[in-house]
Simulated assay, not measured.
Amino acid sequence: MWTLVTTLLLSSLCCGSAQILFKNIESVTVTGCEKNVVIPCHATNMEPEALGDVYLIWFFGKTLILSFDGSKNKYSRNPAFQSGRISTSAFLKGDASLTLNKNEAKAGNYTCAVTELSREGKQTVELKNNHRTSWFPLSENILIIVFPFLTLLLFWAQFAVLMQKYKSNLVNKKMMILSTSGLLFTMVVIVGAFLFIPGNYSKKKSYGLILLVTPSVIPVFLQYRKFMPAIGRTLYAMIMLTVIQALGFALIMVGSFITVNECAPKYGYLLVSGLIIVTLVELLGFIYMKWLDPLIGFE
């Protein structure tokens, strides 16, 4: 009886030791932002004494990607997966993860088959592609484009109030400053919007983002000019609008700095919040100028 039990236990231990075990990783997802894709394969009970004790094969479905013979320290690759590689030093510690160029990494099942002397094991990991169709999420993309144009429209609306209601002359120095600044504002925002057309991250789009949002500083600097010469009557309104709008622009700069070089921005809401604040302040300035203080004008 004991002999039978002992035999069964030894048989169980033998079979268990002959099997290479792996970390439980069923799938990985790539976004397209990575230059290289790493498909994990982590053996948990490998104890090779030398590289010559191990052998590895990677498959995509039933197609061979590469094989690595530790005894010869040599790769054999499929021409369709020329970028495929592993870290031999990591492999000795059980990490047989496959690195591929993102152009060669296709969605599907990848299998690593590891052999260590007389032991072997294999694991299959699914690679899922989550292709980004836009640098920023769609809602943020729309807001980032829309609010600079709304700010621009409100800027020109204030300019029109000063021109029509108070019969200001374009030759007037203050009006020249406003009109020139407005034209610069308009041109830069249009160029920025053209470069920022929704799509995947690129250097061109990062330049477009900068051109699109940084001109929002222009209305901040022009609050004083827009409310002169009635500065005595509108001092508190001008100070309040300038401070709030400056805080909004600070958020724009922080958001831009954090996100401009990120393939998958996480803090786009900071940028959007700043744009919203700048636009709302410009709207409040328009309302105040047109209806709340009819004495604002230019000499």
Score class of each variant (00 low, 15 high):
Lys122Asn: 14
Thr124Tyr: 08
Val125Asn: 13
Glu126Gln: 14
Leu127Met: 14
Lys128Asp: 02
Asn129Tyr: 11
Asn130Gly: 05
His131Gly: 04
Arg132His: 09
Thr133Gly: 09
Ser134Met: 09
Ser134Gly: 06
Trp135Gln: 03
Trp135His: 02
Pro137Met: 13
Ser139Val: 12
Glu140Trp: 09
Ile142Lys: 07
Leu143Glu: 01
Ile144His: 01
Ile145Met: 03
Val146Asn: 00
Phe147Ile: 00
Thr151Val: 06
Leu153Val: 11
Leu153Gly: 14
Leu154Ile: 05
Gln158Asp: 11
Leu162Phe: 02
Met163Pro: 01
Gln164Asn: 01
Lys165Met: 11
Tyr166His: 12
Lys167Cys: 01
Lys167Gln: 03
Ser168Pro: 01
Met175Gln: 06
Ile177Asn: 04
Leu178Tyr: 03
Thr180Asn: 11
Thr180Gly: 12
Thr180Lys: 10
Thr180Tyr: 09
Gly182Lys: 13
Leu183Met: 15
Leu183Ser: 14
Met187Asp: 12
Val188Pro: 10
Val191Arg: 06
Leu195Arg: 09
Phe196Ser: 04
Phe196Leu: 15
Phe196Asn: 07
Phe196His: 09
Tyr201Phe: 15
Ser202Ile: 07
Tyr207Phe: 15
Gly208Asn: 11
Ile210Asp: 02
Leu211Trp: 04
Thr214Ile: 15
Pro215Thr: 13
Ser216Glu: 15
Val217Met: 12
Val217Asp: 06
Ile218Thr: 10
Ile218Trp: 07
Ile218Arg: 05
Ile218Pro: 05
Leu222Tyr: 07
Tyr224Thr: 11
Tyr224Asp: 04
Arg225Ser: 06
Phe227Ala: 01
Pro229Lys: 08
Ile231Met: 04
Arg233Tyr: 02
Thr234Ile: 01
Leu235Asp: 00
Leu235Met: 04
Ala237Ser: 09
Met238Asp: 04
Leu241Thr: 06
Thr242Asn: 02
